[in-house]
Computed example of a mutant assay.
Amino acid sequence: MTNHRSDAVVTVRGLRKSYGSRVVVDHLDLDVHAGEIVGLIGANGAGKTTTVECIQGLRRPDAGMLRVLDLDPVRDADRLRPLLGSQLQDSALPDRLRVGEAIELFATARARNGDELLARFGLAERRRSAFAALSGGERQRLFLVLALLNRPRLVILDELTQGLDPSARRDVWAAVAQLRDEGTTVLLVTHELDEAEALCGRVIAMRAGRVLDQGTPAELMARHAGRATVRFGWGAGPDDLASTLRRLPGVADVTEAGGRIAVHGERQVIAHVGAELVRRGRVPADLDVDVPDLEAALLHLLDTATNPAVPVLTGAR
Score class of each variant (00 low, 15 high):
residue 36 E to N: 11
residue 94 P to S: 05
residue 256 E to Q: 15
residue 192 E to P: 00
residue 272 H to E: 13
residue 123 L to P: 11
residue 145 V to S: 06
residue 99 V to Y: 06
residue 193 L to M: 13
residue 14 G to S: 15
residue 90 D to K: 13
residue 289 V to Y: 03
residue 182 E to I: 06
residue 223 R to I: 01
residue 245 L to F: 03
residue 194 D to V: 09
residue 99 V to P: 02
residue 232 F to D: 06
residue 301 L to S: 06
residue 150 N to F: 10
residue 293 D to A: 00
residue 119 A to H: 14
residue 178 Q to E: 15
residue 188 L to I: 04
residue 103 I to Q: 07
residue 308 P to G: 02
residue 73 P to Q: 04
residue 17 K to T: 08
residue 265 G to P: 01
residue 141 R to L: 03
residue 264 H to W: 03
residue 200 C to R: 05
residue 84 L to Q: 05
residue 83 L to I: 00
residue 7 D to Y: 05
residue 114 G to N: 00
residue 93 L to N: 13
residue 163 G to Y: 11
residue 126 R to F: 10
residue 241 L to A: 13
residue 240 D to S: 15
residue 266 E to W: 07
residue 18 S to D: 13
residue 105 L to D: 09
residue 139 R to V: 06
residue 7 D to I: 08
residue 118 L to I: 12
residue 110 R to V: 04
residue 122 G to M: 12
residue 116 E to F: 06
residue 251 V to N: 09
residue 130 A to I: 01
residue 167 S to E: 14
residue 311 P to V: 07
residue 48 K to V: 12
residue 280 R to E: 12
residue 315 G to E: 08
residue 304 T to H: 13
residue 166 P to K: 04
residue 285 A to S: 12
residue 39 G to P: 00
residue 13 R to D: 12
residue 280 R to G: 03
residue 92 A to E: 14
residue 288 D to Y: 03
residue 316 A to F: 02
residue 51 T to R: 03
residue 2 T to R: 14
residue 73 P to C: 04
residue 46 A to G: 08
residue 104 E to N: 05
residue 293 D to L: 06
residue 239 D to W: 01
residue 206 M to S: 01
residue 174 A to K: 14
residue 284 P to G: 09
residue 162 Q to Y: 02
residue 109 A to Q: 14
residue 25 V to C: 06
residue 135 S to N: 09
residue 127 R to A: 12
residue 152 P to R: 04
residue 81 R to E: 01
residue 278 V to P: 02
residue 68 V to M: 00
residue 246 R to Y: 07
residue 157 L to D: 01
residue 209 G to R: 07
residue 66 L to A: 05
